[in-house]
Design a protein around this nucleic acid. Structure first.
Lengths: 173, 173
DNA sequence: TTTGAAAAATTCTCATGTTAATCAATGGGA
DNA sequence: TCCCATTGATTAACATGAGAATTTTTCAAA
């Protein structure tokens, strides 16, 4: 209902240079999922950033290294997907991570288009150093929020991520 | 399905230049909140991006304009906080949004340090055009996911965002 | 075999995130 | 009144997000 007007109840006219009347929103600033997810994520990350910063790696770099640690040798597409990083971003990151000696890169013998990435011993060392602290934070969240509810939240997030809505603007097949 | 020769299912020592043994992760790649929130948010936004793109505004620009539409005249700090945007980002955005005529900027008479931002009629027009479509997407999500559960999810996200953990690495006092 | 579409990376360009440093204005206390 | 710590905003530098265009390589159909 875009019905506005509704005669601005109260106030107004404390300062009007033009006809900027609609002092009243179309609807109450209802909580939105987009913002809610953003804020929650920001809050969670704020607890990890100090840890990662202490090891001089960004959040995204950590994701890439962690995925390679768990996944072994992967091609760029798989890696980007598992680490939730865009291909162009990954391309840039690979250069830096390789220079810093955390990962190695080499062409796929079978398919010349593919680039295979793999973690190095140095990268594994980083993981073994950061992981414990990371787990500690999650343990803390579990304690404060409740393991049960964390699991429930993860379930909902997962389901939300796999939702297919009307206008298939993102269908991938 | 290309790839997946799965040559080294039996892990270990297929290639070790050093002591790269830990072919096995420290723990199962357990679902993490950080990633879960990221993916869920990405999924949700994928439904809004086309709408915003059609009006040539980014997600962040939309948040700023929307907040100003609802909040009237705000200073940069308030705006940044309500729109969940960092101050440096907002500074950059202000220039662009002002050039495009969506907002106006002027110093605070009382406090010369503050910058007051306000939406323009053009900005309000944008809101009235985008908002309906935006609401449609949320309505769709409500339908698919369940209004009840969306509310529940929002509650959990909000609570998660306000969690205070042990190591006050972000405590604000 | 040749050709053209599709796949996988990369490159470009612009906008924002993140942190640190800097600038400008304010306000309280010596 | 003057000085300085604080506050609010901006700038700088680097990394990533997002989308479009380009390059290289595959692969399948003609």
């Amino acid at each position: 209902m875009p019905n506005k007007t509704d005669s601005d109840a109260g106030q107004t006219s404390a300062f009007d240079t033009e006809a900027v009347k609609p002092r009243r929103p179309l609807r109450e600033p209802r909580r939105s999922l987009a913002i809610g997810l953003l804020r929650a994520r920001e809050a969670v990350m704020s607890h990890f950033r100090p840890i990662l910063a202490a090891h001089d790696v960004t959040e995204q770099q950590w994701r890439v290294i962690r995925v390679l640690y768990e996944g072994g040798k992967l091609d760029a597409t798989e890696l980007a997907d598992k680490a939730s990083i865009l291909a162009p971003s990954l391309t840039r990151m690979i250069r830096l991570l390789e220079e810093r000696g955390f990962i190695t890169k080499h062409k796929d013998e079978a398919d010349g288009r593919r680039v295979l990435l793999q973690i190095t011993p140095a990268g594994e060392t980083l993981v073994t150093e950061v992981m414990p602290e990371s787990l500690k934070v999650y343990a803390d969240i579990d304690a404060r929020f409740g393991v049960q509810r964390v699991e429930q939240l993860l379930d909902m997030l997962q389901e939300l991520a796999s939702l297919k809505l009307e206008n298939g603007s993102v269908g991938e097949e």
